[in-house]
Design a protein around this nucleic acid. Structure first.
Lengths: 126, 126
DNA sequence: TATTTATATAATGATTTCTTTATCTAATGA
DNA sequence: TCATTAGATAAAGAAATCATTATATAAATA
């Protein structure tokens, strides 16, 4: 998983209507019209949030004639939060996407006594 | 933790700049000016994201003269994701904030053969 | 004391997000 | 076939978010 995947998943989780929909789907898969009647919200509102969550990978859909059945992908949610925690425990040197940042942190640490942002000499970035 | 707390935490996590800041703070606590030079981003941009994350509980600040030292609250992050997973595994009947929804799901299930959203009779919500 | 440094905060504008209303497609059923 | 139902999608407006620029505050230093 890259940063962008995390952003999609956690942005999807960071919204009250979507959290409610996901909680209901944790009870059992549901049709859109079921979510509609349980949450007492408009159909487009629910459909649009479902699309966001589908794109994040948190739910999947299955057509049943004219209805659509949505299921919570609990495994993907588990995996996403596990990966996030692992991401925070991974050494910066082992994250290719943080190559530049890693170099600059090393710079900071090696110059701790004289330079940037330590001992009162945090000069503006050029 | 209530829904609102989850929203704050996961909304805070669902943004690329904030994820980068958090990742750096996972290496060690840092001053704002350190984040500034490592991420090569403007100071207000970083300060504003730090405030969002402080309000979500993901970081804490500590003043050191004119500088401010920010620390990742890894425990709170761990606890938040644990609580979220637990939330999804908790029976709807045991979540007071879903009292109404729980009633309506029970209605749905008991009328599965004749009524709303089952067997082709999903009428619009009044 | 005057200047510089570190940081917070306000103001602004651009973009995104969320909800509603309206429309469209496809499947069902009278 | 025509009306209804389920759902997706588009259009529009309000509100929130994000980054930049500008300003404010307080500590450090010359």
């Amino acid at each position: 998983m890259n940063l962008n995947d995390y952003v999609k998943v956690f942005k999807a989780l960071g919204e009250p209507t979507r959290l409610k929909i996901l909680k209901l789907l944790s009870v059992r898969p549901m049709f859109v019209c079921e979510l509609e009647s349980v949450l007492q919200m408009s159909q487009p509102r629910i459909s649009q949030h479902l699309r966001t969550m589908k794109e994040a990978g948190l739910v999947t859909e299955q057509k049943d004639a004219q209805r659509t059945y949505y299921s919570l992908q609990m495994d993907y949610l588990d995996q996403s939060v596990d990966n996030l925690i692992t991401f925070f425990h991974t050494d910066l040197a082992d994250l290719p996407q943080f190559k530049e940042e890693h170099l600059r942190v090393k710079q900071l640490d090696s110059n701790a006594d004289v330079a940037l942002c330590k001992e009162g000499n945090c000069n503006p970035v050029v």
